[in-house]
Design a protein around this nucleic acid. Structure first.
Length: 956
RNA sequence: GCCGGAGUGGUGGAAUUGGUAUACACGCACGACUCAAAAUCGUGUCUCGAAAGGGAUGGGAGUUCAAGUCUCCCCUCCGGCACCA
């Protein structure tokens, strides 16, 4: 028997596929096309990661299946090769980035080829290739011409020790990634791309694409669309008008103060000539500094009064304007109108004793005695009296005799009666205590809904809680009637809260208010404006919006969290920004005929002392003639971020060698959109959003045929190291795929990565477990080698075979694998193929036509071993160009089915019935089965439930 | 804090979407082959119980003939965002 020599087999077929161009896509082929895409890797020095293999194998399986289904498949690969690690390596070693990149991409290519991926290598692209980045620059200039690229001041992270601008990921927590020292913010003029102009479409068009829900949700959160209102307010004693943005404005009549961001541009003007100016600005600066250095850790409620007031547009008078730590200059208008009905505003008002006004009252529904349908609802104002005995701090409670109720003293307010008087009266009537000292009223009213069983009506009560101290025990005799209703008890707050019969849904509210633990009311019933009085806050929004706008109080406004894209980097290893700065003409685009602006060679790759790109040191490159006026001018020395090249690479694959356009219309029309794009969740908010933005821009220029670049987007889970931590060089837990390919083979590695767990979830690596898929492939190999009957004509053999389960399981497996691949359930397709192989092994023989179908189904997973056996069986053409097997319905149907018999939901026995037996007969058979008898004998059978082809449940 | 996702044997995980919980695989134990080991093959492997039976899907309640799956509350872990008005 021949040994399964994976090294020999895999090398042989990889060469053959290359030679025969098996995986090359045809430009504008006639038939149906499929464009499968995986994120092109950054060719780091560390080489291919097992995570790359997971994603690439998945799309490889899908692409291979599509090919076998008759599609013209484009499954390309390339290099996202600009970036920091290469540049930092160059700074350290002096080796040119281009040379390092060449070296790394060669390694990656070799590794990817050794995995047997069906990439069309004739379409390889590289973002650092001038022939590629010519078009990156070209698209940028188109954006510039349309006003989407502009220069603005922006903050960068700056390390004063290394004198270098740092990317955000290099300055996490305000610490320099290189030297560990503190970083600071520096304001620099930077090129920006106006992605916010596309924010609405980037949000809305998600409706039309097939992305995983979690991806859409993350993108939507990132874009952060929020529909709200703008209020304008005149500042008192000045001609300034401030504007505020609110998204939650239902309670805007409660607003009692304004806050402005400490770094708001208007702050200076607001303070002009005022005595508070210096103190306020000092405080504001302090807050901004804390924010910068502490980042997300900074959560202090802090602020200062500006000394100025603005006139409330809703007629609530002059409201103070404060500087507040939580106000952000870049969101909304940077100024907020604040009320007690917002958590942050409330905390701020509390801390600085700013007057508040509450216009939402809480609404509670008694869960024990909920309002009953069909009963009349009686509305009234009422009190709850909280009588405290100062000796032991116990609370006066009533235990009802006819009902299982424990309550406070409760009673209605009559007419225009004062709540305190009403409370005194009720306490006297119900308990006889007459000497009470008024302490306080617990906040505003609470709207309470319950069924008053003693009165037989539903009640909507507006409760006010009034607190008294008991001065002494002196009581008047209460009426016999009162005595028959309830007993008096004194309980601590705690005892009361734990009382099973407590009938007071307001209890938690009273406790919080009593012990001065105020929290903002966010939900409940609106009291102002009068037009909306009594309505619940969560259902009033659309009406109150219309009302506020119609009355001219406010105007509608939509804001986004998404910010414009900072597009400049003061780095060497990126696409030069193709603009020229001319003293007389301003910024002038490099003429298209002069593109690309290529990177010159430099001596040092480190940024200059003042934070400029190293390109700035090469005066021969920087100094140019203005393309416009021919006068002296200088080149922009900033480069693009590495998100630039990846924003459109999928377009270049369709026509990678085109010198006249970034891709021909014809090819774009045929191949785009990408039918299926798989990648990591870490690219959901940046790369995915950026490339959608570029694509939409190109669509507006009518340069691409679709609104969206990717029809479908899925994502893979991360592969973690054995202990469940991230793989990283520093932890030394990185798995090297090269070793595994040598030891077990690419087919085994591919199978293992598909088998190890659900594709979309994170899994821990386990080299030990790889032996499973390896054994599986060896078993496949062995079955083929020992398969003796090749062309069976022997009737007895055919009859035996038909009686065996191989054929049945084979067709079931084809069905399962066919469906599983579409849903990326690779782990279960592998396990079902394992079950099939175990069966073939057990039976001991298999028809070769059936074995071939099995090989075809396995081919996308393990392309080498299947090709080897396929050819050895006499096939002349590649298995990967053969037709995807179809399952035969009639072979899936079982003649006999197993029915589980349950008694009262517990499995008691199983019966075998023929598939066409009718329900009645099956039920009878189950009831008379001896396994069932002992469980149902002498018991009344109440119901028999039959689930077709599955089970019978006998209820006794 | 907010938004996602998850919690099932010693381990990775399955479960036709409400219908036999633990498929498949790893590991482990025992056996066969072997002078021996490796590899391979076979048997066993949630738990209590001698058995009959009972109990288990993070915890607690509920709906149902039937719950890993649905509903409510709570706990833990992972990912993303984080003062977004």
């Amino acid at each position: 028997m021949k040994k399964y020599d994976h090294l020999k087999i895999e090398g042989k077929w990889q060469k053959e596929w290359d030679k025969k161009k098996v995986y090359q896509a045809k430009n504008a082929g006639k038939g149906k096309k499929f464009y499968g895409l995986v994120e092109f890797p950054y060719p780091s020095g560390a080489g291919l990661h097992v995570g790359h293999i997971r994603s690439n194998t998945a799309m490889d399986i899908i692409s291979r299946k599509r090919r076998m289904e008759g599609y013209n498949v484009l499954y390309p690969m390339g290099w996202d090769a600009f970036g920091l690690p290469t540049e930092n390596f160059a700074i350290k070693t002096g080796i040119q980035p281009a040379i390092v990149t060449k070296r790394n991409t060669d390694t990656f290519r070799k590794q990817l080829k050794s995995m047997g991926f069906s990439f069309d290598w004739s379409r390889e692209v590289n973002t650092t290739d001038p022939a590629y980045y010519k078009w990156t620059q070209w698209i940028f200039l188109e954006m510039y011409k349309k006003g989407l690229a502009y220069k603005a001041k922006s903050e960068i992270n700056w390390c004063p020790k290394d004198k270098i601008g740092l990317a955000n990921e290099e300055a996490i927590g305000g610490v320099c990634d290189r030297c560990g020292g503190p970083t600071e913010k520096r304001v620099k003029e930077q090129w920006m791309l106006a992605i916010t102009k596309y924010a609405d479409r980037l949000d809305k068009d998600l409706d039309g694409v097939n992305y995983l829900d979690k991806i859409k949700i993350q993108q939507r959160n990132w874009i952060g669309k929020s529909e709200g209102l703008i209020f304008s307010a005149k500042v008192k004693d000045s001609d300034i008008t401030i504007q505020t943005f609110s998204a939650h404005y239902e309670a805007c009549f409660a607003d009692t103060f304004f806050v402005i961001a400490p770094d708001h541009p208007l702050l200076d003007k607001l303070l002009e000539g005022r005595k508070e100016k210096d103190a306020v600005l000092k405080k504001a600066k302090e807050i901004v500094q804390k924010r910068d250095t502490q980042g997300n850790e900074y959560k202090d409620v802090d602020g200062v009064f500006t000394g100025r007031y603005a006139i409330d547009p809703l007629g609530n008078g002059e409201l103070p304007i404060w500087v507040a730590s939580f106000a952000l200059k870049d969101y909304g208008t940077g100024i907020v109108k604040c009320s007690a009905h917002d958590e942050r505003d409330f905390a701020f008002a509390n801390k600085f004793n700013i007057k508040i006004k509450e216009i939402i009252i809480p609404k509670v529904v008694d869960k024990k005695n909920p309002p009953q349908e069909g009963k009349e609802t009686v509305e009234r104002n009422a009190i709850q009296a909280i009588i405290i005995n100062p000796k032991d701090q116990k609370v006066l409670c009533l235990k009802w005799k006819k009902f299982p109720w424990t309550t406070l003293v409760v009673g209605g307010i009559e007419g225009n009666e004062d709540p305190i008087l009403a409370a005194r009266r009720e306490v006297l009537e119900e308990t006889g205590y007459k000497n009470l000292k008024y302490i306080k009223t617990l906040g505003g009213q609470v709207e309470s809904h319950f069924y008053a069983a003693h009165k037989g009506v539903n009640r909507k009560a507006l409760f006010t809680a009034v607190v008294f101290d008991l001065e002494n025990e002196e009581r008047v005799e209460t009426s016999a009637e009162e005595k028959s209703i309830h007993d008096i008890h004194w309980m601590t707050w705690d005892e009361l809260g734990k009382d099973k019969n407590l009938t007071c849904s307001e209890y938690d509210i009273w406790v919080d208010r009593f012990f001065n633990k105020p929290h903002p009311v966010m939900d409940g019933v609106l009291m102002e404006p009068l037009e909306f009085k009594g309505r619940e806050i969560h259902e009033v929004r659309s009406d109150i919006t219309r009302w506020l706008v119609d009355k001219g109080f406010a105007t509608k406004k939509t804001t986004y969290k998404l910010r414009d894209w900072v597009f400049s980097r003061q780095r060497y290893w990126g696409e030069p920004i193709p603009l020229i700065n001319c003293g007389s003409c301003g910024w002038v685009p490099v003429p298209v005929k002069d593109l690309p602006v290529t990177l010159p060679k430099v001596k040092s790759y480190a940024p200059t002392d003042n934070g400029e790109s190293p390109l700035a040191t090469i005066s021969s490159w920087v100094k140019v003639k203005c393309p416009n006026c021919k006068g002296p001018a200088t080149r922009e020395t900033d480069t693009m971020p590495n998100w630039a090249g990846s924003s459109w690479y999928y377009l270049r694959y369709t026509d990678p060698k085109n010198k006249k356009e970034f891709a021909s219309k014809k090819n774009l029309k045929y191949f785009t959109p990408v039918d299926w794009y798989n990648g990591g969740m870490e690219h959901t908010t940046l790369h995915l959003l950026y490339s959608r933005f570029w694509h939409k821009f190109l669509y507006d220029l009518k340069l691409v045929p679709t609104k969206e670049p990717y029809a479908k987007r899925t994502s893979h889970g991360m592969i973690l190291a054995e202990k469940g931590e991230k793989m990283s060089k520093s932890k030394g837990n990185v798995v090297n795929p090269d070793d595994l390919v040598k030891l077990y083979g690419a087919d085994t590695l591919r199978m293992y990565e598909m088998f190890m767990g659900p594709f979309d979830q994170a899994v821990s690596w386990s080299t030990e477990s790889m032996i499973g898929p390896r054994r599986f492939l060896e078993r496949v190999w062995k079955i083929y080698q020992s398969m003796t009957v090749k062309n069976p004509k022997d009737k007895k053999f055919l009859a035996d075979y038909a009686a065996s389960s191989v054929e049945n399981i084979l067709h079931k497996t084809i069905k399962k694998v066919t469906e599983d691949i579409e849903n990326m359930n690779f782990n279960t397709s592998v396990s079902s193929m394992m079950i099939l192989v175990n069966e073939m092994d057990k039976v001991g023989y298999v028809k070769d036509s059936d074995f071939k179908m099995f090989l075809q189904m396995l081919a996308p997973f393990a392309p080498h071993i299947t090709e080897e056996i396929w050819r050895d069986m006499g096939e002349k053409k590649s298995i990967h160009l053969s037709k995807w097997p179809k399952w035969n319905k009639s072979k899936i149907i079982d003649d006999e089915v197993k029915i589980v018999v349950q008694v009262n939901g517990k499995v008691r026995t199983e019966i075998m019935v023929s598939a066409d037996m009718d329900e009645e007969s099956i039920k009878n058979k189950a009831l008379n089965d001896k396994g069932t008898k002992s469980w149902i004998d002498g018991k009344e059978i109440k119901r028999v439930i039959y689930v077709k082809g599955r089970l019978i449940n006998i209820v006794v």
